[in-house]
Protein backbone atom coordinates (compact mmCIF):
# COMPACT_ATOMS: atom_id res chain seq x y z
CA UNK A 1 0.00 0.00 0.00
CA UNK A 2 1.03 3.57 -0.58
CA UNK A 3 2.75 5.80 1.92
CA UNK A 4 0.77 9.03 1.93
CA UNK A 5 1.74 12.24 3.67
CA UNK A 6 -0.91 14.92 4.13
CA UNK A 7 0.49 18.40 4.80
CA UNK A 8 -1.49 21.12 6.58
CA UNK A 9 0.19 24.50 6.01
CA UNK A 10 -2.70 26.94 6.49
CA UNK A 11 -4.79 27.72 9.59
CA UNK A 12 -8.33 26.34 9.92
CA UNK A 13 -11.65 28.28 9.76
CA UNK A 14 -10.82 30.96 7.12
CA UNK A 15 -11.74 28.20 4.66
CA UNK A 16 -12.73 24.53 4.90
CA UNK A 17 -9.67 23.09 3.17
CA UNK A 18 -8.14 21.61 6.31
CA UNK A 19 -11.32 19.77 7.25
CA UNK A 20 -11.57 18.47 3.67
CA UNK A 21 -7.95 17.30 3.82
CA UNK A 22 -8.50 15.47 7.10
CA UNK A 23 -11.45 13.65 5.55
CA UNK A 24 -9.21 12.56 2.69
CA UNK A 25 -6.58 11.40 5.21
CA UNK A 26 -9.17 9.29 7.04
CA UNK A 27 -10.32 7.72 3.77
CA UNK A 28 -6.68 7.03 2.91
CA UNK A 29 -6.30 5.14 6.17
CA UNK A 30 -9.59 3.27 5.66
CA UNK A 31 -8.14 2.10 2.32
CA UNK A 32 -5.15 0.68 4.23
CA UNK A 33 -2.77 3.45 3.19
CA UNK A 34 0.11 4.22 5.51
CA UNK A 35 -1.04 7.73 6.32
CA UNK A 36 0.97 10.47 8.03
CA UNK A 37 -0.01 14.05 8.72
CA UNK A 38 2.38 16.99 9.03
CA UNK A 39 1.49 20.44 10.36
CA UNK A 40 3.87 23.18 9.30
CA UNK A 41 4.04 26.98 9.12
CA UNK A 42 0.65 28.60 9.87
CA UNK A 43 -0.93 25.15 9.73
CA UNK A 44 0.27 24.58 13.31
CA UNK A 45 -2.38 27.07 14.54
CA UNK A 46 -4.80 24.21 14.00
CA UNK A 47 -3.22 22.54 17.05
CA UNK A 48 -4.48 25.18 19.52
CA UNK A 49 -6.72 23.79 22.28
CA UNK A 50 -10.18 25.20 23.06
CA UNK A 51 -11.41 25.70 19.49
CA UNK A 52 -15.14 26.34 19.02
CA UNK A 53 -16.19 25.87 15.42
CA UNK A 54 -19.82 25.78 16.53
CA UNK A 55 -19.67 29.56 17.09
CA UNK A 56 -19.69 29.98 13.31
CA UNK A 57 -21.58 26.77 12.56
CA UNK A 58 -18.48 24.96 11.36
CA UNK A 59 -16.99 21.68 12.47
CA UNK A 60 -14.40 22.12 15.19
CA UNK A 61 -11.08 21.31 13.56
CA UNK A 62 -9.40 20.11 16.75
CA UNK A 63 -12.25 17.65 17.30
CA UNK A 64 -11.87 16.12 13.84
CA UNK A 65 -8.17 15.92 14.57
CA UNK A 66 -8.66 14.05 17.81
CA UNK A 67 -10.75 11.45 15.94
CA UNK A 68 -7.90 10.61 13.56
CA UNK A 69 -6.32 7.82 15.65
CA UNK A 70 -9.71 6.04 15.57
CA UNK A 71 -9.27 5.94 11.79
CA UNK A 72 -5.74 4.63 12.16
CA UNK A 73 -4.14 7.89 11.12
CA UNK A 74 -1.59 7.47 13.85
CA UNK A 75 1.47 9.26 12.64
CA UNK A 76 0.89 12.93 13.47
CA UNK A 77 3.78 15.36 13.17
CA UNK A 78 4.31 19.08 13.60
CA UNK A 79 7.22 21.22 12.41
CA UNK A 80 9.21 22.11 15.54
CA UNK A 81 10.50 25.49 14.25
CA UNK A 82 6.99 26.47 13.12
CA UNK A 83 5.63 25.68 16.59
CA UNK A 84 8.48 27.52 18.34
CA UNK A 85 8.22 30.61 16.08
CA UNK A 86 4.60 31.03 17.17
CA UNK A 87 5.23 30.50 20.91
CA UNK A 88 2.78 27.63 20.70
CA UNK A 89 2.68 24.82 23.22
CA UNK A 90 1.35 21.49 22.03
CA UNK A 91 1.84 19.67 25.32
CA UNK A 92 -1.95 19.05 25.39
CA UNK A 93 -1.51 16.84 22.29
CA UNK A 94 0.86 14.08 23.36
CA UNK A 95 0.12 12.14 20.16
CA UNK A 96 1.81 14.80 18.02
CA UNK A 97 5.53 14.39 17.49
CA UNK A 98 7.69 17.45 16.81
CA UNK A 99 10.08 17.14 13.85
CA UNK A 100 13.15 19.15 12.95
CA UNK A 101 13.48 20.35 9.34
CA UNK A 102 15.98 17.58 8.75
CA UNK A 103 13.48 14.99 9.97
CA UNK A 104 10.82 16.51 7.70
CA UNK A 105 13.16 16.14 4.71
CA UNK A 106 13.50 12.44 5.51
CA UNK A 107 9.74 12.09 6.07
CA UNK A 108 8.88 13.64 2.67
CA UNK A 109 11.55 11.69 0.83
CA UNK A 110 10.15 8.42 2.22
CA UNK A 111 6.64 8.95 0.79
CA UNK A 112 4.93 7.61 -2.33
CA UNK A 113 2.62 10.62 -2.50
CA UNK A 114 2.34 14.00 -0.79
CA UNK A 115 -1.10 15.61 -0.59
CA UNK A 116 -2.32 19.01 0.51
CA UNK A 117 -0.71 21.93 -1.33
CA UNK A 118 -2.81 24.95 -0.37
CA UNK A 119 -2.66 28.71 -0.29
Amino acid sequence: MKKMLFIISQPPYANTHNAELLEAAMVGAVFDGEVSLLFRDDGVWGLLPNQHGELIEQKTFSKILSALPTYEVERLFACAPSVADRDLSISHSPEIELLTLKQQIALIAAQDVVIGAQR
Binding site: S9, R40, D41, L101, Q104, I105, I108, A109, A117, R119
Partner: peptide, 24 residues
Amino acid sequence: MSLHLVFNSAGYAACRQRKLSDDP
Protein backbone atom coordinates in the same frame (compact mmCIF):
# COMPACT_ATOMS: atom_id res chain seq x y z
CA MET B 1 14.31 11.15 -5.47
CA SER B 2 11.61 13.79 -4.96
CA LEU B 3 10.60 16.45 -7.49
CA HIS B 4 9.30 19.75 -6.15
CA LEU B 5 6.78 21.91 -8.00
CA VAL B 6 7.01 25.49 -6.74
CA PHE B 7 4.04 27.74 -7.54
CA ASN B 8 5.06 30.97 -5.77
CA SER B 9 7.86 32.58 -3.76
CA ALA B 10 6.41 31.64 -0.36
CA GLY B 11 6.14 28.08 -1.65
CA TYR B 12 9.83 28.24 -2.53
CA ALA B 13 10.70 29.34 1.01
CA ALA B 14 8.77 26.40 2.48
CA CYS B 15 10.22 23.97 -0.06
CA ARG B 16 13.89 24.88 0.23
CA GLN B 17 13.86 24.13 3.96
CA ARG B 18 12.39 20.69 3.41
CA LYS B 19 14.14 19.31 0.32
CA LEU B 20 17.31 17.35 -0.14
CA SER B 21 19.90 19.53 -1.81
CA ASP B 22 19.99 17.32 -4.90
CA ASP B 23 16.22 17.22 -5.41
CA PRO B 24 15.20 19.06 -8.59
